[in-house]
Design a protein around this nucleic acid. Structure first.
Length: 956
DNA sequence: GCTTCTTGGGTTTTT
DNA sequence: CCCAAGAAGC
């Protein structure tokens, strides 16, 4: 699409004051309009970035907007840091707000954020605490895991609908009462553990705004313009938060969405937010703009889905449940051709894969398809046998399939081998896994399978080293006498050194042919460390070894298999070149592909709520039901397939293995809901379809800017490119070690001291108060990290802090700012930094970075000190660019230096800074070009690195 | 020949 | 929970 805007887009961009509702049909240039509108606000209003609030549905969408916007700003020489905007998903913006005002919430420093699995597992581990309640509203016969899942579902529902649990426990209804009590207990438990889950993120935010009027006013004065994308997918609590943040006078809020593409009812999202949006404002104040010219699809396709929506009745005697609209084609020439066709397996045969293959190869051979990534298959779910079978069949025939959410993780060779290897070093496994004589789990067959696979490999001559190592470990573990100095995850990293596994990681200048296995092993490292975290395992202990083996396999891995593990997805590359994408319709939202196959035509509208839900809705939700209960399943069904159909640019293909139900238990495919449409489109073999007339669009990468900071990226890379490759690029999770919390607790406490000074509460700073801060920081940290410092080490940490205060208390007046987070958008990346301390007078400042390690000898450690100097220079650059102050000097402060001079100081030199930034940019380039060559191993670093065994064996 | 009832088998989506 | 068959009922 070119950059000229159509009339309605122009209108949306130019009208920036007051409330606005934009109904944007599929492919109507929504993102472009949004970006132009933001740009227009920035340009005409000359506002600060923190005056803008932009929420998107996914992190990826947020990143795309940031990248496109920052490019536009750079093009026009506007210097504004988009990182200071409130931009991201609702959840991430709420987290930012909570972070900003943390002291006003129940949250303490170092809180733990639980994702869905964490929350489920937390409830599973504590399920007996809830028994009395869950027995009342969850089937007693369910397994504990299933109970925990159900419980999490209801608890999240209460949070998301902002139901007051104290109302629930007053109920006569046992179910409702028990649910309320369970909720109260849950809130208590997560508060004790300083935890947050996805839905309480938003709840804490709204509580914060409700309880503290000043904060609400401060925020709503600061946030001058609000824009919300995908508004149809917002839920009750999100709408409430939004309206708390609106500045009441200006009411500059613009919501964008398409009621027809609302797909997230199961998460509490309601179309009602977008349909009733204008009612929130006085008469006709809300401007409504429809974007319904489609720039994406061939007119046949547009017709097809317009028709589809027309089939359903969107109103009843109570009201209308849809903005009635017809998507229009753009004004240009289109090839005259059938562009909605079917490719299907014949009735009751097993030939679907071959048909699909034949069709695809046909297009490829005629050079219609250049790259397989122009094709996408959309399914209701990709986690089922039909889909994986099709994927496997096509791969067998030579077409690559990209389907990271298909739940293939545990079927992958590298994962099965790794699980097999772990089993083999714990020979007690077959006995230990039984909790009684007759115990059996179906997952054991899988584990046995893994073991078998591994055993076959390890018998081979070329794997004899691994065999010897394994036997030694097995002999040790079968009769473990004393604590080891390693854990399961340490063993994982040791196993990687052997060729059977190192082949997946082996690199010659990062030429790993297929990254998938190494990504999967990286995910596995994450799972193992998570397991050890959840069960407080740091080393193997004879007393608990058997129990922990049982837990690892019978519980942890089993439940992961149940929930499914997604494989790696590159956010900048949703359709990797060379592969056909298999994805869910939900995943495909907002995307487009030249050729779209829509499958799952066996599907039909299904009821998705139960009685408890109806009871809650009726009596406790903040508002009455909106869409009629009996209509909901139909609406959702129609919206889902509307979204699917409208992803197609040039060719829409309906596909299925046709089936007419002629035996019991079979069903008709396509189901009756698609029957008519399906019957009326030609097959690809029909001469109504002329492939040669097709011209497909190209699929490109999304250009996303990545963040880089000196310490966690550049320094790491300079020290060891391989460490960067494995732990940053491939994201392997290091084995948890206690040492880093020393530095963190010292930093945090020094920050507390600085913050007190800055608030003018210098008098607070005495030994007792510092000790209190220290203890609180330490306790929060160990609660989160579950690793500890010895009392003697704690004492040393505290003394270093006291020592710092003793030495510097006469300088407090110099203190300007502490813990300053700065980021700077560069042409190709985003530079981030966190400056510990800025001090000085007027506009000339000095910056200080605290180091908790031993102060090095200046002559012996030139390199190390130079690198820290570079770090300071990067910070100086950030400060001068962003805060508009001149930096005169830069210091490192070594807290461990009690007697001598704790400082190493440098004068600022602008030329050197430029050189450092240039070097920074060069390293970013190397990283982005995937250059990870290593000349020589940095032996000092290797001692601490989990990959050392791998390197010992693979770099000689 | 038409309607109603019974029965067997298959069955999600995500911050 | 839903489909579609087969059985039962008229």
């Amino acid at each position: 699409m070119d950059y000229s805007l159509n009339q309605n887009q122009q209108l949306a961009v130019e009208n920036i004051e007051g409330p606005m509702l934009i109904i944007a049909g599929p492919g109507s240039g929504k993102t472009l309009t949004l970006i132009e509108r933001i740009y227009n606000i920035i340009e005409t209003k000359n506002i600060k970035p923190e005056n803008l609030f932009i929420s998107t549905f996914t992190e990826k969408a947020a990143q795309e907007i940031m990248t496109r916007l920052s490019n536009k700003l750079i093009e026009n020489n506007i210097d504004l840091n988009i990182y200071d905007m409130y931009i991201g998903t609702f959840h991430s913006i709420c987290l930012d707000i909570l972070e900003e005002y943390r002291e006003f919430t129940r949250l303490k420093k170092s809180y733990t954020l639980m994702d869905q699995f964490d929350q489920n597992y937390f409830l599973y581990q504590n399920i007996y605490d809830y028994k009395e309640f869950t027995d009342k509203f969850i089937n007693k016969k369910y397994s504990n895991w299933r109970k925990a899942n159900k419980l999490a579902y209801w608890l999240n529902k209460i949070s998301e609908e902002m139901i007051d649990a104290s109302d629930l426990i007053k109920s006569e209804d046992e179910e409702i009462k028990a649910l309320g009590e369970a909720y109260i207990l849950y809130r208590q438990q997560i508060e004790e553990n300083n935890m947050l889950d996805f839905s309480t993120i938003q709840l804490e935010t709204i509580d914060l705004l409700k309880r503290n009027k000043e904060i609400r006013v401060e925020l709503s004065n600061k946030i001058k313009y609000i824009m919300v994308d995908e508004y149809q997918d917002t839920n009750t609590i999100q709408e409430k938060i939004l309206f708390k943040l609106i500045n009441e006078e200006s009411e500059n809020i613009c919501v964008v969405g398409d009621d027809d593409q609302g797909l997230y009812r199961f998460r509490g999202a309601t179309i009602r937010n977008i349909l009733e949006f204008p009612n929130n404002f006085k008469n006709n104040e809300c401007t409504q703009i429809n974007l319904d010219i489609n720039y994406r699809s061939h007119p046949n396709i547009i017709n097809f889905y317009n028709n589809w929506m027309d089939q359903e009745f969107w109103e009843d005697n109570k009201g209308e449940y849809r903005y009635n609209k017809i998507v229009e084609e753009q004004d240009k020439e289109f090839p005259k051709n059938q562009t909605v066709i079917k490719v299907s397996g014949k009735n009751n045969e097993d030939d679907w894969s071959e048909e699909v293959y034949e069709f695809l190869i046909n297009l490829k051979e005629k050079n219609i398809i250049d790259d397989w990534n122009q094709v996408a298959f959309l399914f209701k779910s990709v986690r089922n046998h039909r889909v994986t079978k099709l994927a496997n069949d096509l791969e067998d025939m030579g077409i690559n399939i990209y389907s990271p959410r298909s739940n293939m993780f545990f079927d992958r060779e590298e994962i099965k081998l790794m699980i097999g290897a772990i089993i083999s070093i714990f020979p007690q496994f077959p006995e230990v896994r039984k909790w009684n004589e007759n115990a059996h789990l179906k997952e054991w067959e899988y584990f046995d399978d893994c073991f078998e696979l591994f055993a076959n490999e390890v018998r081979k001559e070329k794997n004899s080293d691994l065999k010897n190592w394994m036997q030694k470990k097995a002999n040790k573990h079968i009769n473990l006498k004393s604590n080891t100095d390693y854990s399961f995850s340490d063993l994982f990293y040791e196993i990687l050194q052997f060729p059977l596994f190192s082949r997946y990681l082996d690199i010659n200048g990062y030429e790993i042919e297929d990254l998938r296995p190494s990504r999967n092993l990286s995910i596995f490292s994450n799972l193992l460390t998570k397991f050890e975290y959840l069960h407080n395992i740091s080393v193997l202990v004879p007393e608990y070894l058997d129990r922990n083996i049982r837990r690892l396999f019978n519980n942890f891995l089993r439940y992961l298999m149940d929930g499914g593990i997604d494989e790696y997805e590159d956010p900048s590359d949703y359709a990797p070149s060379g592969s056909i994408s298999f994805m869910t319709v939900h995943q495909s939202k907002g995307l487009e592909f030249p050729v779209v196959f829509v499958d799952s035509l066996y599907s039909y509208p299904r009821k998705t709520y139960d009685e408890l839900e109806v009871k809650l809705q009726k009596n406790y939700y903040k508002r009455d039901a909106f869409e009629p209960w009996d209509k909901i399943k139909h609406f959702d069904f129609w919206r889902l397939y509307y979204t699917a159909f409208s992803r197609a640019e040039n060719l829409l293909v309906l596909t299925c293995q046709e089936n007419s139900a002629d035996r019991r238990g079979q069903r008709n495919v396509p189901s009756k809901y698609f029957e008519e449409y399906y019957a009326n489109i030609p097959s690809w073999k029909s001469n109504m379809f002329k492939p040669k007339k097709l011209e497909l669009e190209e699929v490109g990468k999304v250009d996303l800017k990545n963040e880089y900071s000196f310490t966690s990226h550049i320094l790491l890379y300079e020290n060891c490119p391989l460490q960067y490759l494995y732990f940053k690029e491939l994201d392997f999770t290091p084995v948890r070690k206690g040492s880093f919390i020393f530095g963190t607790v010292v930093h945090q406490t020094i920050e507390d001291i600085h913050k007190a000074v800055l608030r003018g509460k210098e008098q607070l700073i005495n030994k007792n108060q510092i000790e209190a801060w220290f203890n609180s920081n330490y306790n929060n940290l160990i609660k989160k990290e579950r690793v500890y410092l010895r009392p003697s080490t704690q004492k040393i940490a505290l003394e270093q802090i006291l020592n710092y205060v003793e030495k510097n208390k006469n300088n407090w007046s110099q203190l300007k700012e502490a813990e300053v987070e700065v980021s700077l958008v560069k042409e190709d990346y985003i530079l981030k930094g966190s400056v510990d301390l800025i001090q000085g007078e007027d506009d000339t400042v000095e910056i200080i970075d605290f180091k908790t390690e031993e102060k090095p000898d200046i002559l012996d450690n030139k390199n190390e000190i130079m690198r820290y100097k570079n770090q300071l220079e990067v910070y100086a650059h950030l400060i001068e660019q962003k805060i508009d102050k001149k930096v005169s000097r830069m210091h490192l402060y070594y807290t461990s230096e009690s007697e001598g001079n704790p400082f190493i100081s440098f004068d600022k030199n602008s030329q050197e800074i430029n050189k450092t930034i240039e070097n920074f940019t060069n390293i970013v380039k190397k990283i982005e070009n995937k250059k990870f060559d290593l000349d020589e191993r940095p032996l000092k670093r290797c001692q601490e690195c989990d990959m050392r065994h791998f390197c010992d064996n693979n770099f000689k």
